[in-house]
Design a binder for these strands. Structure first.
Lengths: 234, 234
DNA sequence: AACACCAGTCTTGTATACAAGAATTGATTT
DNA sequence: AAATCAATTCTTGTATACAAGACTGGTGTT
């Protein structure tokens, strides 16, 4: 009977050389679910049955349910009362709303970051950008996206405004999901990279006004690619 | 021993004339916890023990834990791994962070509202402003605050961006609490009112840039009054 | 043949039991 | 007397059991 959680992918074996912390299965489950949704493995509209997720994640329903609450608050899934939870849809009009707001948020972050950034941090971002360019030339999309995300995250951290950080965090999963789609277009991918280099120049010279403007444009430029892609799929 | 959930405050009595649906205790618990935190009943830094919350809310640990995950994703509490959940802090320095972000959010709302507002809506806001001025001259602060809040809310609604609306709603309770304090100062009260009239002029002439600027300033001007007041209390 | 109704099944919602990780207190040692 | 360690207690993390609400398929009636 109880064969559920003994050796699932999240279970940490005794000989786990990574020294992974135990506990917090719900956090790990939330992470897993996030990436499953962002990767498209769980497409929009998909009904998520709890027991099925339990089997896939190798944990019981309790952490799965808690994880679902977490990602529901992040807007990745919708909770239907007494019915299955479903992966939330990404409609084209909603996307414009999201990107307008998110661009503005990152714009504020950009301005604040320019005021507060240190030389060491400029160097750090520069190294990340170099890595990202590298992955782009090698056409390795997954690592590229990871570094891209890291640059945006570090910028918000450097802005050093916890309220801003919280708001940003609440929006970023949805944006991340959309961005994953957008960069499937190779032309936009290169364009986005070019914009990033311009943004770095503005950051390095601490031109907050310019960086904010570039940041807002960066998001608005991605929008049409996303929207056209959404129209095809859904 | 099982006396926990039979008659807690969340249990819906048979004679409940509201016809409230059963189930969804976790959602109700989340709502209760939200208002307890926003009202200050659960002050920042407070350690939340699950069983204690269970007794207060009259439910078992399962919905309480799910509710905690929800409001944690909203940033109201911090989840310490294997330790108690604590209400997230917000002191005087944080207040500046809050107002910078909130001012920017309302600034975006202002710009969007200027693009979309109808003549009828301009009239509506104008009437609200007139009412507010009336309450100010009569020194009736509570109704003044209510109208004030209504004007800001209508502006965000007119902006017609659901993402923006959600973000705004997540921040407004904290701002509202702070604003209640700030207007205790009569000088600032009059100043705020004057700013509101200028903001209305900008809105009526659909000058989004100007309105956004005035809005941001409106919040920044309130800040010093609040901060001095917080230093005394906490 | 179409519709309504009922039973069986599936899925979620909640409570509780159990285990493991922290914190605390008291005793023992130096 | 102070510090350290051990044992108790407290708290969180996870699994499972049970109940109640939705879905599905089939049967009977019109």
């Amino acid at each position: 009977m109880g064969k559920t959680a003994e050796n699932g992918p999240l279970a940490n074996e005794p000989g786990d050389s990574l020294g992974r912390k135990k506990g917090q299965l719900h956090a790990e489950a939330a992470g897993k679910l996030r990436s499953m949704i962002l990767s498209g493995e769980l497409p929009p509209g998909e009904r998520l049955r709890e027991v099925q997720l339990c089997e896939q994640l190798g944990v019981s329903r309790t952490p799965v349910r808690e994880a679902l609450r977490t990602i529901a608050a992040e807007g990745l899934v919708d909770l239907l009362p007494n019915r299955s939870v479903v992966v939330s849809e990404l409609h084209a009009p909603d996307l414009e709303h999201l990107f307008v707001v998110f661009g503005a948020i990152e714009g504020i972050a950009a301005e604040l970051a320019c005021q507060k950034i240190t030389e060491a941090e400029i160097g750090e971002i520069g190294r990340l950008l170099a890595e990202m360019i590298d992955f782009h030339t090698r056409k390795e999309r997954a690592p590229y996206m990871q570094i891209n995300q890291k640059i945006h995250q570090r910028t918000v951290e450097i802005a050093a405004n916890p309220v801003l950080h919280t708001v940003w965090q609440s929006l970023v999963p949805r944006v991340e999901r959309a961005r994953a789609l957008a960069n499937l277009d190779t032309g936009r991918w290169t364009g986005a990279l070019f914009e990033h280099t311009k943004m770095f120049t503005a950051l390095a010279s601490r031109d907050g006004q310019l960086l904010a403007k570039l940041t807002r444009e960066h998001f608005l430029n991605s929008l049409p690619f996303l929207q056209s892609r959404l129209e095809n799929d859904d």
